[in-house]
Write a protein that binds this DNA or RNA. Sequence first.
DNA 1: CCAATTAGTAACCGTATGGTTACGTAAGAC
DNA 2: GTCTTACGTAACCATACGGTTACTAATTGG
Lengths: 109, 109
Amino acid sequence: MTLLKPKQREAVFRAIADPTRREILGLLRRRKHTVNELAGNFRTSRPAISKHLRLLRRVGLVVTKNEGTARICQLNAKPLRVIDDWLRDYQEFWAQSLQRLKRYVEEDQ
Amino acid sequence: MTLLKPKQREAVFRAIADPTRREILGLLRRRKHTVNELAGNFRTSRPAISKHLRLLRRVGLVVTKNEGTARICQLNAKPLRVIDDWLRDYQEFWAQSLQRLKRYVEEDQ
DNA sequence: CCAATTAGTAACCGTATGGTTACGTAAGAC
DNA sequence: GTCTTACGTAACCATACGGTTACTAATTGG
């Protein structure tokens, strides 16, 4: 399920790198939105949001369903597990203080 | 400590978006490396790695210390907390199955 | 002193990215 | 049918990004 191909894994990191896309995900965390509703929250044009949504759909972070002329967008957070898995390997490292880190760097291993 | 300015927060997401930079971090997780040692692990030229390191240093993910003509690079995982904090808000969502999600999208809220 | 090692920077280059405007399309509303 | 609404897509544009080569700076070793 979380078994994504390297290319898709890569795409998730890229997807969340953009602040507008993160904001879109944030909005979808609260409730479903149509494309127009989403676009209303940004200064950028609707086509720009459409592009972001296309990308988010491709990586699976957004699921949609057509309803009349509207398109309902829904969050699917699953692909974010890719990021979480990656982070896990670093958690043990961010516990140590910067002080200790500096001292460690000063020493010769 | 994890209180970063929006711009720096943003920079962390960008920093980990690049696969080469993630690989660099992965190498530094094992042990300290000089710039040359790091570059040896990639096909790309040393200046390219230098650029990545400059970026990683700016966001604080890499700390360095000069030793003779060499520069020792060390991992500082702390800034990754920014990502972890962001992810936390989504964890409750990735529990639900895709099946349930689809059903949910089908319904009208 | 001079040579070698290590690394940063400058200048450049192709491509990716995010934005725009203009247009096309599909589903109600009339 | 025609109009309107809600989108997507195409074409274009400026800038950011990741890479290269060439050059420079600093330290060590002879």
